[in-house]
Design a protein around this nucleic acid. Structure first.
Lengths: 99, 99
DNA sequence: TATGATTTGTACGTATGTATT
DNA sequence: TAATACATACGTACAAATCAT
């Protein structure tokens, strides 16, 4: 009942995986993340799917990207716990489901 | 100089164009927007470019989308004037430019 | 109610531009 | 200067939800 196929979406699974990585605490703000190409290979997905997942973390303020430079950690989930609450964008989308 | 090539980006130009349309006041919350295909043809761009522009308005809370259904107006810029201030996402990105 | 058409969502692929390293 | 890496934008295909008949 009420199956939530959230994890079946690759971009969302990648976002969750990366967020968990940051929550582990082994990364500090300023640390560089792997390249899109490296993450694509690691997750076995297209580069754009990685970018889609990245956009979630960017909107959450956890990660920042700059053209030409590697993405880096802007904050960790522990800094200001958003926990299960997802980004604004997500809220709007899921809210759209309600009648 | 200091040219700000904000308008040269198609997805941003489309977002601005659609936002201006909503600001005109001829649309009310609940009104349906043209389909992605129609907007693609109208702006002469790919469907994904339209979707990219849409994501801006979605994050601003002006538009909502549901799979299978047309996008509809959730609010108008006049409802809560954001004016020149761009969405959170944009702020993060542009903030990334600063040293 | 049921079926088919419409429309958005996801995912992959490719090419080129532009900033950083 | 050259290599690296992200950003934009085109394209294709299929899945899934909605709408219309």
């Amino acid at each position: 009942m009420c199956d939530s196929p959230e994890e079946t979406l690759r971009w969302k699974a990648i976002a969750n995986a990366l967020r968990s990585e940051l929550a582990e605490g082994r990364n500090s703000p300023g640390d560089k993340l792997p390249t899109e190409a490296a993450l694509s290979a690691h997750f076995g997905v297209n580069r754009h799917t990685v970018r889609h997942g990245f956009s979630v973390l960017i909107d959450e303020g956890l990660v920042r990207t700059r053209r030409g430079a590697r993405a880096y950690v802007a904050a960790t989930p522990n800094d200001y716990p958003i926990g299960q609450r997802i980004r604004f964008h997500e809220n709007l989308i899921t809210a759209g489901r309600q009648p």
